[in-house]
């Protein structure tokens, strides 16, 4: 298709809406050299413009091609062919050609699915990684304070452990921290809570706050089990698992909302639910990595890493459970298995 040449002459028939108004007239647009003239049905000259004031909007399906002039007059014509000869090929016409309904669109479908997978698998984690790296330490600390307050409101009570026992556990915690590599910025804090609702347990927050329950401290003889669980929690902090999960879910929500206009509400819900289920596999992966991190750390600090097995064996149903797709953690049986493998290898 040839681009516009100055000696070309074109005539388009259609309708015009006069300057900024709804007044509709049948009209002919005559393009000759540098001048554009809009004529009414009975040959009356409605207005004249220069060639460079004639800008057709990009084509869209079979809808009329439209051009709005500087004075607010709108011209519409169904004559796609002539308009195309006037404008030549533009980015808009390329898009229009790509959109045409034919078998090539199957490749677009495949590309969209593949692209969606690649974004989810690689682009989103990369963005999350950068965001985690740029999150300032004070912000993480502030988030810890908020989470700890919510924790206290909902399930936790002040500890009932004696000061001496607390000091013993603090010493274990300090021993573990002193073995951490390149620990420059994070400030680690250990808190004791009486929380019967969650049994023997410990929780790590992004800013370095670790909460340990009384049941865990007093439920096992010696310090090895406490050290093993604290080592695991420190793994979550050092490898930024909590923040990564938070950013991943925020980022996923934003990405899905952006394409929601093109997926409709039902598929949007399916995508969001699917995203939650897929994110659980990341959560289980983080647990495995924190286990390995904790095993290495406890061994370096002089505790018995196998104590983590003791801990999991003490959990109810530890030997029967299979890991299921809807779980945030791998099953205890599976974790014991991988801990044994890890200890054998090293």
């Amino acid at each position: 298709m040839s681009a516009f040449r100055s000696d070309d002459e074109f005539t388009l028939t259609g309708r015009a809406f006069l300057a900024r108004s709804s007044k509709q007239v049948s009209a002919t647009l005559r393009l000759k050299g540098d001048s554009v003239t809009l004529l009414s049905e009975d040959g009356e000259k409605l207005c004249t413009f220069r060639r460079n004031e004639l800008k057709f909007e990009a084509p869209l399906g079979r809808t009329d091609r439209r051009a709005t002039f500087p004075d607010g007059t709108l011209f519409e014509t169904p004559d796609h062919e002539t308009v195309q000869r006037i404008t030549g090929n533009t980015a808009g016409t390329a898009l229009h050609v790509a959109e045409r309904f034919n078998s090539r669109l199957i490749y677009f479908v495949v590309a969209a699915v593949l692209g969606g997978f690649l974004v989810w698998r690689f682009a989103l984690p990369a963005i999350v990684y950068v965001a985690v790296a740029f999150t300032p330490e004070p912000l993480k600390d502030a988030m810890d304070v908020g989470t700890l307050q919510a924790f206290d409101r909902v399930i936790a009570n002040p500890t009932r452990l004696s000061e001496e026992r607390q000091d013993e556990v603090r010493e274990v915690f300090a021993n573990l921290i002193s073995e951490l590599e390149d620990n420059d910025s994070t400030q680690f804090d250990l808190h004791f809570r009486f929380a019967p609702g969650i049994g023997p347990n410990a929780v790590a927050l992004p800013g370095g706050t670790v909460v340990i329950t009384d049941a865990l401290v007093s439920g096992f003889p010696g310090d090895d089990v406490v050290a093993a669980v604290l080592g695991h929690e420190l793994g979550h902090v050092v490898e930024n698992h909590g923040l990564t999960q938070l950013y991943r879910s925020l980022g996923f929500f934003v990405l899905v909302s952006l394409i929601a206009g093109d997926t409709g509400p039902i598929l949007e819900d399916v995508l969001l639910e699917g995203g939650v289920i897929l994110s659980l596999s990341y959560s289980r992966e983080f647990e495995r990595r924190a286990d390995e991190f904790g095993l290495r750390l406890t061994r370096k600090a002089g505790y018995d890493p196998a104590a983590l097995i003791t801990f999991f064996e003490s959990l109810p149903g530890s030997l029967s459970q299979e890991t299921s797709w809807d779980s945030t953690h791998p099953s205890s049986a599976e974790r014991i298995e991988s801990i044994r493998d890890f200890l054998k290898e090293s």
């Binding site: 669109l105 677009f108 590309a111 969209a112 692209g115 974004v119 990405l255 952006l258 093109d262 997926t263």
Partner: peptide, 16 residues
């Protein structure tokens, strides 16, 4: 359909 799938594809490859 043609307009929609092109919209969707371009949205995905440009990260939204």
């Amino acid at each position: 359909f043609g307009i929609w799938i092109v919209n969707l594809l371009l949205t995905i490859v440009t990260l939204g």
